[in-house]
Simulated scan of single mutants.
Amino acid sequence: MVNEDGSIPLENSRREMFCHLVAVSGLSFVDAYCESSPTPREKNHGAKVNASKMGRRPDCEARIAYLKREAQALADGELKLDRAGIAALQDTVTEILLNGARVAQIHDAGLALQMRQNIVRHSGRQSRTNANLGGVKKRPANDGLTPDRVLSNLRFCECHG
């Protein structure tokens, strides 16, 4: 099922990263394909063909178009955020950080550690923002979610911790 307007992040973290690299960073399909790969890729004919295929997928096309519209609205100052909009934007940033940490874990354990530290800092800021905004429900104190539990869920293989 394709999210027709592209507003929902893709479930496949590699495709989501590919879309962000094309839409926000301005990379070509080939560069974004190679950069989003869990293993180092060379820019050969196969990469060009697969990058083109990925870029033409309906879900990727919709997501890239949506991300470009959002980036342009933000650049033009048209994006007006209310309380719910700020919370949604922070949720998007959290998801992007989590996807980045997943990819970083594959490539570089040191980078993955830095990403996890950024996620913890961002989560703290998000909690403070939600508390300051009021109207956004706070998470119950006894829900069992701790920074250690979040970080333990980010470790994807035994060799990295």
Rank of each mutant, 00 (worst) to 15 (best):
I96Y: 04
I96Q: 08
I96A: 11
L97P: 00
L98S: 08
L98H: 09
N99V: 09
G100A: 06
G100R: 02
A101S: 07
A101P: 00
R102V: 02
R102K: 10
R102E: 05
R102N: 01
R102S: 00
V103P: 00
V103R: 15
V103I: 11
V103K: 12
A104D: 11
A104M: 06
Q105L: 06
Q105M: 11
Q105C: 05
I106V: 13
I106E: 15
I106Q: 15
H107Q: 10
H107G: 06
H107F: 06
D108Y: 04
D108W: 04
D108S: 11
A109K: 08
A109R: 10
A109S: 11
A109H: 07
A109L: 03
G110L: 08
G110P: 00
G110T: 10
L111T: 09
A112D: 02
L113F: 12
L113S: 09
L113E: 13
L113I: 07
Q114F: 06
Q114P: 00
R116I: 02
R116M: 12
R116F: 01
R116K: 08
Q117C: 07
N118V: 05
I119E: 02
I119M: 02
V120D: 10
V120S: 07
R121E: 11
H122M: 09
H122E: 04
H122I: 01
H122Y: 03
S123K: 08
S123A: 15
S123D: 07
S123Q: 11
G124Y: 04
G124K: 12
G124W: 03
R125M: 15
Q126K: 14
Q126W: 05
S127G: 12
S127D: 12
S127I: 11
S127T: 13
S127W: 09
R128M: 14
R128L: 15
T129Q: 04
T129K: 01
N130K: 07
A131W: 05
A131F: 06
A131I: 09
N132H: 12
N132K: 13
N132Y: 09
L133R: 02
L133A: 01
L133I: 11
L133C: 03
G134P: 02
G134D: 05
G134R: 04
G135T: 06
G135C: 02
G135E: 12
G135L: 07
G135D: 11
G135Q: 05
V136C: 07
V136M: 13
V136W: 01
K137H: 08
K137G: 08
K137L: 14
K138P: 03
K138T: 11
K138I: 08
R139A: 14
R139K: 10
